[in-house]
C-alpha cells in the first residue's frame, strides 16, 4: 500500500492505496464520485475521461499512484452548485444528450479543448472529441453543442 494525495475538483484527498489501483477506481470507489463512467477499460471509448493537470486522460489507463499530486477535474467539478457550465447548458439546449453515458467524458473533452482554443474550428472540434465514442447521437448534435458553448463562453467573457 502506498499513500497518495490528489486534488479532485479543488478538494484534497489522501488515501492509502494498492499501487495497481487505476485512477478511475480511485475516483469512483475511493472518493465515491460516480459521474466518471467506465465503458471499455482499455482507453478506446473515452467515457472515463477526466482532466488531469489541464489535459484530458482516460482515467482507466492512468494509475492513481502516477496521478499523485495531480489536479483532477471530473464532471462533478464542472458546475458551480446549481449553476451549470456553459458547455452543459449548450448540450441541453441543442439536444446533444441521449443515453448520457458518454456525456461526462464528452463534456470534459470539450472543456479541455475550449480552455486551450476557444475559437476551435469544426474540424478542430471533431478532433478534440475524437477520443470520445457516442453510440446514440451520431455526433451532429454534440458538435453543434460545442459550437453553441463557444458562443456562450465568448459572450460571457465580453460581458465581463
Amino acid at each position: 500500500m502506498i499513500e497518495v494525495t490528489l486534488k479532485i475538483n479543488g478538494k484534497m484527498y489522501t488515501r492509502k492505496i494498492n499501487p495497481m489501483l487505476r485512477l478511475i477506481d480511485f475516483i469512483r470507489d475511493e472518493i465515491k464520485l460516480k459521474g466518471t463512467k467506465e465503458g471499455c477499460g482499455e482507453g478506446e471509448c473515452g467515457a472515463c475521461t477526466v482532466i488531469m493537470n489541464g489535459k484530458t486522460v482516460n482515467s482507466c489507463l492512468v494509475l492513481a499512484a502516477s496521478a499523485n499530486g495531480a489536479e483532477i477535474t471530473t464532471i462533478e467539478g464542472l458546475s458551480n452548485g446549481d449553476h451549470l457550465h456553459p458547455i452543459q447548458e449548450a448540450f441541453i439546449e441543442v439536444g446533444a444528450v441521449q443515453c448520457g453515458y458518454c456525456i461526462p467524458g464528452m463534456i470534459l473533452s470539450t472543456k479541455a479543448l475550449l480552455d486551450e482554443n476557444l475559437d476551435a474550428t469544426e474540424a478542430q472540434i471533431k478532433e478534440g472529441i475524437s477520443g470520445n465514442l457516442c453510440r446514440c447521437t451520431g455526433y451532429t448534435k454534440i458538435v453543434e453543442g460545442v459550437k453553441i458553448a463557444q458562443k456562450k463562453i465568448i459572450n460571457s467573457q465580453e460581458g465581463d
Binding site: T36, I92, G95, G100, I103
Partner: peptide
C-alpha cells in the same frame, strides 16, 4: 423543442446507472 427531463442528471454526472 422540449428539454428532456432526465438531461440534468446526465450532464452533471448524477444520473444513476446500475454500476
Amino acid at each position: 423543442n422540449y428539454t428532456r427531463p432526465d438531461v440534468y442528471g446526465k450532464i452533471s454526472g448524477k444520473a444513476v446507472y446500475p454500476d
